[in-house]
Amino acid sequence: MKGMTVVVKTIASWVKILIFLFGIYIIITGHRTPGGGFAGGVIIAGSYVLLMLAFGRQFAEENLPLPLASRLDCAGALLFALVAIVGLVFGGSFFVNFLYQQQLLPSKAFQLISAGTIPLSNIFIGIKVGASLFLVIFTLSVCCKDFKPATPAKEKEQN
């Protein structure tokens, strides 16, 4: 994939930031408005897929290298499990909302920082979903017919 015409590239370079910011907005306000980690994560993955379709695979990989993406994927899942385990330590059972029930944070409805561990879990779920969906679409695009021979850096990441 060499990328598309200059019109598509220009528009994509403007729009990608807006899509990314919209994904972050959807994630961090997921506990009081519609949205949440799943939708926001898919939107963030969509911004990188837009880069990949408009500029070609190489450009998208320079923006988000594959080892970093897979590490983000694993880190999101681990941190989400870590929130649950911290709840086990502090609150007495797995997945307990310890930040809210012990009133460690100011908790009033409709505030940005409220609801205890739910925004934290939303952020970790968003990172995990976004990174893994970017990885899967990138992997599916590797087997395209017009695949260019790779650089040595890409051989290293295969191992």
């Binding site: 519609p34 909302n97 409805a109 609801a115 739910i118």
Partner: peptide, 18 residues
């Protein structure tokens, strides 16, 4: 019980986080 105004978020991340 959870402090989240979005009840769907409170279900998927607190009541039914498993």
């Amino acid at each position: 019980k959870t402090g989240a105004a979005n009840l769907v978020a409170s279900v998927i991340l607190d009541f039914r986080a498993y």
